[in-house]
Design a protein around this nucleic acid. Sequence first.
DNA 1: CATGAATGAGAATTCATTCAT
DNA 2: AATGAATGAATTCTCATTCAT
Lengths: 240, 240, 240, 240
Amino acid sequence: MIAEKRMDIEIESHVENPDRIERRREQVVSAAVKKFAVNGYHGTTIKEIAEAAGVSTGLIYSYVKDKEDVLLLVFMAIFRRYQQEIPRQLEGVTDPLQRFCTAVRAYCEAVGSNVGATVVGYQESNALSPERRDIVKKLELKTNALISAPVEECIKAGYFRSVNVELLTFRVVLLAHGWALKNWYFRDRISLNGYIEEGLSLFLHALLTPSGWQHWRALNEVAMRPPQPSKRPARRRKAG
Amino acid sequence: MIAEKRMDIEIESHVENPDRIERRREQVVSAAVKKFAVNGYHGTTIKEIAEAAGVSTGLIYSYVKDKEDVLLLVFMAIFRRYQQEIPRQLEGVTDPLQRFCTAVRAYCEAVGSNVGATVVGYQESNALSPERRDIVKKLELKTNALISAPVEECIKAGYFRSVNVELLTFRVVLLAHGWALKNWYFRDRISLNGYIEEGLSLFLHALLTPSGWQHWRALNEVAMRPPQPSKRPARRRKAG
Amino acid sequence: MIAEKRMDIEIESHVENPDRIERRREQVVSAAVKKFAVNGYHGTTIKEIAEAAGVSTGLIYSYVKDKEDVLLLVFMAIFRRYQQEIPRQLEGVTDPLQRFCTAVRAYCEAVGSNVGATVVGYQESNALSPERRDIVKKLELKTNALISAPVEECIKAGYFRSVNVELLTFRVVLLAHGWALKNWYFRDRISLNGYIEEGLSLFLHALLTPSGWQHWRALNEVAMRPPQPSKRPARRRKAG
Amino acid sequence: MIAEKRMDIEIESHVENPDRIERRREQVVSAAVKKFAVNGYHGTTIKEIAEAAGVSTGLIYSYVKDKEDVLLLVFMAIFRRYQQEIPRQLEGVTDPLQRFCTAVRAYCEAVGSNVGATVVGYQESNALSPERRDIVKKLELKTNALISAPVEECIKAGYFRSVNVELLTFRVVLLAHGWALKNWYFRDRISLNGYIEEGLSLFLHALLTPSGWQHWRALNEVAMRPPQPSKRPARRRKAG
DNA sequence: CATGAATGAGAATTCATTCAT
DNA sequence: AATGAATGAATTCTCATTCAT
């Protein structure tokens, strides 16, 4: 946790006090995300970020080397969120299938609660210098591990067919990011929850083995957190 | 068809001759795609595009109102490609299931043969003014129709479960775009073909009804282009 | 007359035929005046002039060295007008006082019938290169002679007090140009005629000697072209 | 008075401090006037103004929205000068006729001490956008009031014939501006003072009633500031 | 002679970054 | 530490001028 907390420690700052650094950077990143989400990275000036953060332009440069660093901080904040939210929701969940579903939901919800930043992540990733882009790629792969682990568990447990884990993970990631990327389209057509369950259902239909289906039914009879019934006619069919 | 071909003529130009317009714009767009793919829209100057296209900066402004128009032309070129390639490959294919598979493959291949432009499409779409963004959205929805039509045919024929067509279409789109978006990752891990078939397999497993599976097997006995065998243990399950 | 007609012969042209040169230049100047009057010299492009003249941009450069030459042609056209109009109206007028009044009226009317060009003359004169500005200055002084001659005659005849002829001439010029310069203000307040007679009246009151007044009254009894009565209370005063 | 002083504060600036704004703008306007007077508005680049003012190009845009604003500031500076100088010289002068003469002289002197700016005013007024042109027109009319008031007083006092005040005012304005407009001509022929007194004499001859003349003579016997005797032979004639 | 596409130098403007206060 | 005025390099876009057809 401390590692994550200080993940951005590598970014240079003229200021000594680490707490102050953290506080100021949060202030700036939060303002930057807002602005970037509306006008994009290139459409946002440092001055605007400073104003939105309620600080002077000069101050930003005490906590950041250049404008790109602000973007990198935004990326880091996104990934930090994933690293915090997904494990938090997985806490105490032990069943592989449940862990998979929970991870997918947690990821999608994390994206959903920060559509702006996620879109910025996609749209502006090539505004980063190669080195910084590498950092982001690493963070991305690290985040993927949060999804691929439950997938592997499900395969090992015989619930999922044996598929290419990497590709599947990536498809889950796209499911989540898709909500952000095409938010303009989905916004007034479907709820985030509906979107998630429809996606999850597609994955389960594609992956569950017969034993997996059995386990799935068993889980849903205990019914801790059933997917929305309307979205699973298949279950009833199977149940019937 | 002619309408699509001249879609970009609506963009203002000081030059009258439509052939010349088309030729010059192709020249410019082609150079722009190359440059945008490397440095992004904002990271590319008009001068660079002009140089890459082997023309003067002034010339560009004879065929385009401003830099944003160049980006719009790039988008239009992408969509034009979809509108040309997918129907071309569907020509003569009548079976719904085959049409679905062919459409998915054609879409993915179109993206694959123009990764640069597709990524630019994602990354820079918010660099467009609202009106132009609307044009792009419309083109996108129009392209989606190329996928959703076969999906609906498959459902009507009883081959696919009855799912939300819009969402499914969108998922296919993401499958295709995913190849471009994460190309940096997949490039040295999997071939485009492998990527496509893995994705297609996932969709089929998720969607095919028993009758769909039957039809699928029948099709593959004629065996024009079978999915990789290792990916279909499920069939046996259903059959059993 | 031929000299004036060919006044602009010094401007280079790639075209041989003098008649064609004249015709084309007239076409261009007339278009230029229209455009300049609305958008000024700097606000008008060669392309716009060409369009307004119904020719190609290239053609203009066959009859003119550069854009400034077009402006110079405009100036020349203005002065040609003065040189034509004022003498034409003075033709047959022999009385010095009448010649003065006629010259003033003719000058003002010439300006009035070409407000646009006159304003351009003022506003853009310093857009000319020094050499061309010198040409314009010479033309201006030459035009002034049309006014200063009658003034001198009037002084010699004892009708006018002996004043500084140069200054007075210049004041008459300003009277005429004033109509153009402040046209935005006068347009809906007074007619050109009213403006002229008021100005003329002021000059006469300032200049006429007693013998001048006497002559003036005599002239007006013959009454070829009396100033508007309402503007000459002074006469009555003297008469009384 | 304070209102006038801060008139230009209405022009947008990124800088808050009004004193700094005023100081910087003066710096820039002063440089701009110099440059404009030589090369005109269009012939002067922002870079040149910046260099002449000893600042960076960027700085100018902290105090001004665009280049046109610089021109507007130049205009405002001209009018501010009139609004300051003319009232200052009229201070303590109560006699209508003296007020008229003083106002005319003050106006001409104000113009004379800033020929460059005045010429720019004429030549470049149509370089302004309509809204800004309106501002300038209003300022011009406001300035005219400084002249028309004494004129009306003189008429009311019976010193002047009853003439069209607007037209007369305008003629006085042209007298003053004429010095600037044709400065290239007058410069080596006559002093500003000679020019003024000749002009004033013309007006007085044109306007003074018998009672006006009487008052005039009385004033000049007290002889605070007599017009150059050589320019007023008329008086003697009348007196005789 | 006439055309109009092509050129490219030049201008206004923006904005990341610095630094004196 | 914080401020925000100042800098100036970089970029988009324009338009006078040329020249192949």
